[in-house]
Design a protein around this nucleic acid. Structure first.
Lengths: 196, 196
DNA sequence: ACATAGACTTACCATTTGGTAAGTTTTCTG
DNA sequence: CAGAAAACTTACCAAATGGTAAGTCTATGT
């Protein structure tokens, strides 16, 4: 059975908004990519802003399921961080547009970002509690958990989504380099986090 | 004496492109901010793309001087990293648009990015050599220097330029939090980098 | 005094953009 | 099979956008 148009539009807009940006993507661009007319998009989503909202919702779901699938609630200590970093890199390789969109929205912070912001608040809140218990248990070094997570988040998302910086460093952003970047990032975080 | 119009345009476009994005900023927006007409801009810069090129050149200069002013060639070991991180945070607080533009260009990687890419290659090349010698000297833990720098760059620029993520973590992105973020980031990097 | 060049503004223009209105075709349902 | 709702397309439109052409004002050098 064919993929419903509504879903095809969302897939396409997620890719376009996430990789090229919101203002840089016109409804006509999206439509011609899909082989339909702009008005077909406006039939399913009453305005471009509504389309962005729905696209963000999709990205939140994708991000949530990618991370939820990786997080083994049993895991303790650094293993759990490693699982999450691996999942993030996997997502960055498979669907770079998802992290791209997250980043776009977290930076611009427009009206439609409320949902993503709250969804991220929940995830980050859990993460903060986890990191705190690990610190109390002596498995992680003492830092401000929120600042620590900010640094970890930035390092991982940055490494996973900045191919141009990799190029500037003389690294081709192919799969092999990405695998290597993942390994090095994990070791980097391990060194920073784990108590002696 | 008054600031020449050409410089005022560049200042304004650096702020606008760096904080809001290229496509999201129209020449009319820039012009009305400056109290001139769009054609005055096109008199000094023959097209919007040329304006972007000139703006990138300005950002490269600002970034270069900010970092060059901080880098004491005598400094060894972690002190030098700390100097650079402090300079980066200072720049992020004073002129967030500079890092914003760098980030914009490194992500999109359009035609105008050649100069910034090469300028960054030079800076990063020096950094790679520095990190390598520190590793050989046993002052830094052994990592792939390029991957290490990628992680450090991502962590610092991410922390310094993602106020929305700070908000999602329940931190107001004011000056005090930024100072705290700087301190924590430095400690985080110190833990990851310095050999025992 | 006067031509000249620099630094603009006013007046347009073609294209693109998000969006509306009014059909037309397809699909479901009674 | 009737008809109504869903899923579109064709035809527009007003505003915004990057850019051109031509005119105006002002300083400057001769």
């Amino acid at each position: 059975m064919p993929v419903p148009t509504r879903e095809r539009i969302l897939d396409s807009s997620l890719a376009a908004f996430g990789l090229r940006g919101y203002d840089s993507t016109s409804l006509d661009d999206l439509a011609s990519d899909l082989g339909i007319t702009k008005q077909a998009i406006l039939y399913h989503f009453s305005s471009k802003e509504h389309l962005l909202t729905a696209t963000i919702e999709l990205a939140v779901r994708e991000l949530g399921s990618a991370l939820a699938g990786a997080a083994d609630p049993q895991a303790r200590g650094f293993q759990r961080i490693e699982d999450l970093v691996r999942a993030t890199f996997s997502l960055a390789a498979r669907r770079p547009e998802v992290l791209g969109l997250v980043r776009l929205v977290t930076r611009q912070g427009g009206t439609a970002s409320g949902e993503l912001a709250s969804a991220m608040s929940v995830m980050l809140g859990e993460a903060v509690r986890f990191v705190e218990t690990e610190m109390v248990a002596g498995r992680f070094r003492r830092h401000d958990p929120r600042m620590l997570l900010l640094a970890v988040y930035s390092a991982v998302v940055g490494v996973a989504t900045e191919p141009e910086v990799m190029r500037a460093l003389g690294l081709e952003p192919d799969l092999r380099s990405l695998v290597k970047a993942r390994r090095e990032t994990i070791e980097f975080l391990r060194a920073a986090l784990t108590a002696d």
